Computed example of a mutant assay.
Amino acid sequence: MSFTEMWEALLPIGRDAESGGYHRFAWTPAELECRDWFRDEALRRDLAVEGDANGNLFAWWYPEGARGPAVLTGSHLDSVPGGGAYDGPLGIVSAFAAIDLLRERGARPGRPIGVAAFAEEEGARFGVACLGSRLLTGAIGPERARGLRDRDGLPLASVLAANGLDPERIGEDPGLLSRIGCFIELHVEQGRALREDRPVGVASAIVPHGRWRFGFAGEGNHAGTTLLADRRDPMLPFAEMVQAARRAAVRHGTLATVGRVEVVPNGVNAIPSAVTAWLDARGPADESVRATVAEVREEARRAAREHGVTVDLAEESYTPVVGFDTALRDRVAGVLGGAPVLPTGAGHDAGILAARMPTAMLFVRNPTGVSHAPAEHAEPDDCLAGVEALAAVLDDVAAG
C-alpha cells in the first residue's frame, strides 16, 4: 500500500465525528485497532512482527546478508484526548513507506531495519508519558508501573493481563536493547519553525519537561446551606495554584500548564471534597523548570492552609534536557543536504531511548503550528518529502 492508502486506512480509527479529534488511548478499542493495522502492514511486507513484554510492537526487515544491531525507526499510535491525526502515526506510516521506497530502489541495507510502535507514549491513560520506552530502558520500575491506574481506577497490571501480557514480566529488556544500534524517529513538527522551502528538519535537543500531580483534600458539603466561613473548599486553593503556575512560568521563562483536573463529587450543588490537578512544566533548563514547580508548590501550600485544606504533590514523570547524539544528528542533517536543526519542547520516545543508544529525530513541517488538537496538520507533499528523507537516512545509516 502507498503512503496515502495507509494514511487513509488509519484516519477513521478513534476519530470523533463532531470535533475531528482523536481518542486513541493505550489498550482501548481504537488503539487496539491501530495495533492490528500495524501488524497487517508489517505482514503485508513480510516483516517479522514481535511484541515485547511491555506492550511495544516491532516489525523487522532482515535484508539478505544484513548483520549487526538494527536501525530502528517508528513512533507511537496512541493520542492525547481530542488529539490530532499526525502526532505519532505519521512516523509509523512514513517508516513503512520508507522501507517500500528502499525496496523499490533495490537498496541492500547492511543492517536490519525495524519499525516500532511504542506503547502509551502520550501518557493519556496511565499518566506517565513514554511508558513503553521507559519500561524497556528501565527508566521506570516495574513495581511502580504495575500500580499506575487510569481514570476508571483500573491498574496497568490488570489491563496488561486482559490483553495477553504478563504484568510480572514488564521492565527493562537488555536483550532487546542490545539488538538495536540506534533509533531515528520521524514526527510532525510541533510548532512552526520550519521555513516554506524546508519541509523537513532535524532535532537538536528536547528541553526539560515533567508532570506533577497536586491533590487538594477538603470537606464536601451542601452548596446552599454551608456558610462561607465554615467551608473547607479545595477548589479555592486549586484556583490559586493555576494562577501561581502562570506567574511562576513568566518569572522563570518556562511553560506551565494545568490541562487536567478531577473534582469529587463533581456536582453543581456540592462543595467538592477533593480536587486533583496535573501540572505540566517545561523550560530551557532543569533549574528553571524545578524553580517553577517549587514556586507553584509553595503557593499551593499557602493557599491550602488559608482555606483549611490539605495538599500533596507527586512527581509523575520528569525528563531532563536530552541532547541528541551529535554525530548521528550531524550525519542525518548532512544526508538531507544541511537540513535545519531545531530544538523541541515536546517529549518523545527518542528522548527516552537516548539514554541507551544514539537517537535522532526528523520533523515534517506543520503549517498550522498546532499540535495535540484537531488542527494539527502536514501537507501531503511534505509528508512524502518526509518519507524520502527518512528513506535516505535509513539507507545511509543502515549501510553497514
Rank of each mutant, 00 (worst) to 15 (best):
A9V: 05
L10K: 02
L11V: 14
G14K: 06
R15P: 05
G20C: 08
G21E: 02
R24F: 08
F25R: 14
W27A: 12
E31F: 11
D36E: 15
R39M: 06
D40K: 13
R45G: 02
L57R: 05
W61G: 01
E64D: 08
E64N: 06
E64K: 06
A66Y: 05
G74S: 04
A85M: 09
D87Y: 07
L90F: 02
I92N: 04
R103C: 01
A116N: 00
F118Q: 05
E120S: 05
V128L: 06
A129I: 05
R134H: 14
R146I: 09
D150T: 11
P155R: 14
P155A: 12
L156R: 09
A162L: 06
L165S: 08
L165K: 11
L177E: 08
R179N: 01
R179E: 07
I184L: 15
I184H: 10
I184P: 10
H187C: 03
V188S: 01
E189T: 03
E196A: 15
E196R: 15
D197N: 15
V200F: 11
A205N: 10
A205I: 06
H209R: 13
H209M: 15
H209W: 12
G210H: 13
A217M: 00
A223M: 06
L228C: 11
R232W: 04
P237T: 05
A239I: 11
A239T: 15
M241W: 09
V242H: 07
Q243S: 14
R251V: 04
R251W: 06
A256H: 12
A256W: 10
T257Q: 09
G259H: 06
P265L: 01
V268Q: 00
A270H: 01
V275M: 02
V293S: 07
V293G: 09
A294C: 13
R301I: 05
R305N: 03
T310F: 15
T319Y: 14
P320K: 09
V322Y: 11
T326N: 03
A327C: 01
L328I: 02
V335Q: 05
G337V: 08
G338D: 06
V341L: 06
P343H: 13
G347I: 14
G347S: 15
G351C: 13
F363V: 03
F363E: 08
V364N: 01
P367E: 11
P367Q: 13
A375W: 02
E376I: 04
E376N: 04
A378D: 00
E379R: 11
D381M: 00
L384W: 00
G386I: 04
A391V: 08
A391Q: 07
D396Q: 02
